[in-house]
Design a protein around this nucleic acid. Structure first.
Length: 306
DNA sequence: ACTCAATGAGGAGAGGCATT
DNA sequence: AATGCCTCTCCTCATTGAGT
């Protein structure tokens, strides 16, 4: 390969193909006709001595080599763009913009309020739209298509075209009716297994129920889920004034101790902590407003760390 | 039947190179 | 510096073949 003769336009075509996985749409994306993109792909194949993209149904599936090249080529283009286009002035105090994200119930309850406070203080003209994140795969697809700017939540799957940034870790606690709780004691394993549970189980759930059931099964125990609720916010109110207990993310539980007659107690078993992540694409590299916003989410996450 | 990638034909424009 | 030739890439239009 003659590196001195590599046409940077080919790398742009490669990037478009990688993102669209469709020759016609990749061509439209960078303003070429379909035959021109097809020809660019032919030259890319010759350049890298690999098929790079194979027909797969309605689209094109990248080969291992294409996947391996995606990162370095994306980084190279980012650096070239950054060198050619000096940083656009971005002033959050005056910028007008609408940012659309998707967040899990947890993200909505814990991260978004902190983020909203930060936005109101530093970027009062940036509007934020938060969509529910129930189907993570569909949300990732929307993120890749540019219909969403970022995702916030836990237990989100990976995508080779997205960037994951850890905001903080979350642990689990138990809640029970305040009058029944003995705050000085950890909930006993016996109580945990015998008391009826209230459970939050959204569509495409977070995996917690099965984790807890597996931990109990390892000890030869089984719990009874007496109430299953569709929204996490309903759990504390279902627990208050009843014999129910529930296992919730700690920051969620603590938000409700002033609103419902509940007490937070330590669980009798060690339930693995989980990460709350911010997921975005490389678009932010070319978008100062989005880059600022992602930094704002990160700062919101920092304020939530214990 | 339909979609989509690949290819060919023919023409336009840009750039490299040798010649004048 | 100007010119002509050549190559390359782009375009549109039309077509083909594979896959669904």
């Amino acid at each position: 390969m003659n590196l001195a003769a590599v046409d940077l336009n080919l790398l742009v075509a490669f990037e478009a193909l990688m993102e669209e996985r469709h020759v016609t749409r990749a061509a439209e994306r960078i303003g070429l006709a379909q035959p021109s993109m097809s020809s660019a792909l032919r030259r890319l194949r010759a350049l890298f001595a690999d098929e790079l993209f194979l027909r797969a149904g309605a689209g094109m599936q990248p080969t291992e080599k294409a996947l391996a090249l995606a990162g370095p080529i994306g980084e190279a283009l980012r650096q070239v763009r950054s060198a050619l286009a000096p940083e656009l002035a971005f002033d959050p105090a005056t910028a007008r913009r609408r940012i659309t994200i998707a967040a899990t119930d947890y993200g909505d309850l814990v991260v978004v309020p902190e983020l909203t406070r930060l936005l109101r203080m530093e970027a009062p003209n940036i509007d934020l739209a938060v969509r529910p994140l129930t189907d993570a795969t569909a949300a990732l697809a929307k993120l890749e298509r540019g219909e969403l700017d970022a995702l916030i939540g836990g237990h989100l799957p990976d995508s080779p075209r997205c960037i994951r940034h850890r905001l903080f870790e979350e642990r689990f606690v138990c809640i029970r009716d305040a009058a029944r709780a003995n705050r000085s004691e950890r909930l006993s394993l016996d109580d945990y297994a015998t008391l009826p549970h209230a459970l939050f189980s959204a569509a495409g759930g977070d995996g917690l129920p099965s984790v807890i059931d597996a931990l109990l099964a390892r000890r030869g125990l089984k719990r009874r889920v007496a109430v299953t609720l569709a929204h996490v916010v309903a759990v504390p109110f279902a627990v208050a004034g009843t014999d129910l207990i529930a296992t919730l993310a700690e920051r969620v539980a603590r938000r409700f101790t002033h609103l419902a007659e509940i007490a937070v107690v330590a669980p009798p078993i060690d339930i693995p902590a989980f990460a709350i992540d911010l997921i975005h694409t490389t678009r932010a590299a070319q978008d100062p407003a989005l880059r600022w916003f992602l930094d704002a989410v990160d700062r919101s996450g920092s304020r939530l760390r214990y």
